[in-house]
Design a protein around this nucleic acid. Sequence first.
DNA 1: GGCCGTCTGGATTGTCCAGTCCAATTTCGT
DNA 2: ACGAAATTGGACTGGACAATCCAGACGGCC
Lengths: 219, 219
Amino acid sequence: MTDASAPQVDGLTPKGRATRRRIVAAAADLMFEHGVARTSLDDVKESAEVSSSQLYHYFEDKSALVSAVIEYQTEEVLSGQQPHLASLDSIPALRAWRSVLVGFRRDLECRGGCPIGSLGSELADTDQRARAEVAAGFRRWETSIRDGLRAMRNRGDLMRGAKPDDLAVALLAAVQGGILLSQIHRDARPMEIALDTVIDHIELLTVRPRKRRVRSRAR
Amino acid sequence: MTDASAPQVDGLTPKGRATRRRIVAAAADLMFEHGVARTSLDDVKESAEVSSSQLYHYFEDKSALVSAVIEYQTEEVLSGQQPHLASLDSIPALRAWRSVLVGFRRDLECRGGCPIGSLGSELADTDQRARAEVAAGFRRWETSIRDGLRAMRNRGDLMRGAKPDDLAVALLAAVQGGILLSQIHRDARPMEIALDTVIDHIELLTVRPRKRRVRSRAR
DNA sequence: GGCCGTCTGGATTGTCCAGTCCAATTTCGT
DNA sequence: ACGAAATTGGACTGGACAATCCAGACGGCC
C-alpha cells in the first residue's frame, strides 16, 4: 500500500531502480514544465542521461512512462502538503494549509499548473488509463481533506446542516481553479481569493465562529 | 469593440473571410477535442477542406492560428452564457446560470475542459501571447460576473462586508476547478458542488437570505 | 571463476509534421 | 473589360520523433 509501484520495480536490481527513478524524475520535471506532448523522449533521454535502450527497457512506450510520472507526481503533491493534509480539522489548520499551497505558487512565480491537474487536463480525453490514474490521485487528495472536515463535523464544530464531503470537493475545486487563474494571470491573488472564499464559507458554518473559549481541560 | 478580429480580416474579400472562418472553426473543434499539440495542421486542412497555401495565406504560422482560436472560443464561451451572464444580480439568477453551465457539461458527457481554460493550461508557459489572450478572455468573463455582484451590493442585497470583486473571482475559480474535476471523474457532480458551495456562501452574505417580501411596488 | 539475466550504447527506420514554393485561378476595383 | 490583388492547388523539404534492433558490458549467485 505504501509503494504502489511495487509491481513495476520488482525484478530490478538497485542500479536498475536508480536508473528508472532517474528517468521518471526527469520526465516529470520536463512534463511539468512543457506538458506531455511537448516533451520528447529525446529530451528525457538527454536530461536523465540514458540511452534509448534504457528507456525502453524500463517502459513499454511513452504512455507507460506517463503513467509512472502521474504516480510520481501524485506522491510528490500529497507528501508536499504534509503534515497539514493529515489534520485539516480546524479553521486555523485550513488557513495554514492554504498558505502553504499559495507559497508553492509564489515559489514557482505562478508558472506551471498543478502537477497532477495539468496532466489530467491534457490527457483526460486521449488516454483513458491516464485519466483513471489522475482520478485516483484526486480521490486520495479529496479523501484527506474530507477526513479533516468530517472530524470537525463529528466533534460538533460544524453545524449539523454542513456537508463535509461536499465542502471537501469545493475546496479541491478552489485549489484547481485558483491555480489555473493564477497561472494564467501570473498572479497568486486569484488562488488566495478562491481558497479564502471557501474557507470563509466553512467558517460561517462553524458552530462557534470565533473566540471559542476553552470550557474544560478534562478530556 | 464588437469585432475584436477586425485588424486581421480587413483586406479580405467575403470569400476569403468565409474560408478563414472555416479554418478557425475547424481548428477550434479539433483543438478542443485533442488539445493544441495533438492537432496537426494536416488535420485542420482536412477538416476545413483547405490546402496548405490557404492555411498559410490566412495565418502566419500555427501559433497565429492558435491566437485566432482563442479569440473565437472566448466569443463562443461568453455568448453561450447569455443572457444569464449579463445579469447575475440575484441568487436565483446565479442558480440559473450555474444550471446552464452544468447542462453544457452534461451535454458533452463531461468530455473536454473549458474551451478557454484548457487552452490556457496547455499554453500558459510556452506561448506568452496565448497566455495574455486567455488572460484577457478571463478578465472579460470575470468582469461580467463582478458587475452582477456589484449591482447586488449597490442595491443593498449583499452585506456591507461582502466583497463582490473577490466573490466573482471565487465563482470563476469554482467554474474552472469544477470543470476539471468533472472532466477527470467523468461526472458532473463535482462541478455542481463547487458552484453550489460558492453560491451558498454568497447567499449567506445576503441581507435577507430568504422569503424576501415585496414591501413596496413604488420605486 | 563462470554462467545467466540485467543493464546499457548507439545506429537505424519509418512516419509525421510545420512550413515553403511556384503556378494557376478567381475576384475586385475602375 | 482588364490589370492587380486576392485566393487556391498541391508537391516538396528538412527536421523531429517514437520505436526497434543488435551487440556488448556489468553484476549477482552457485
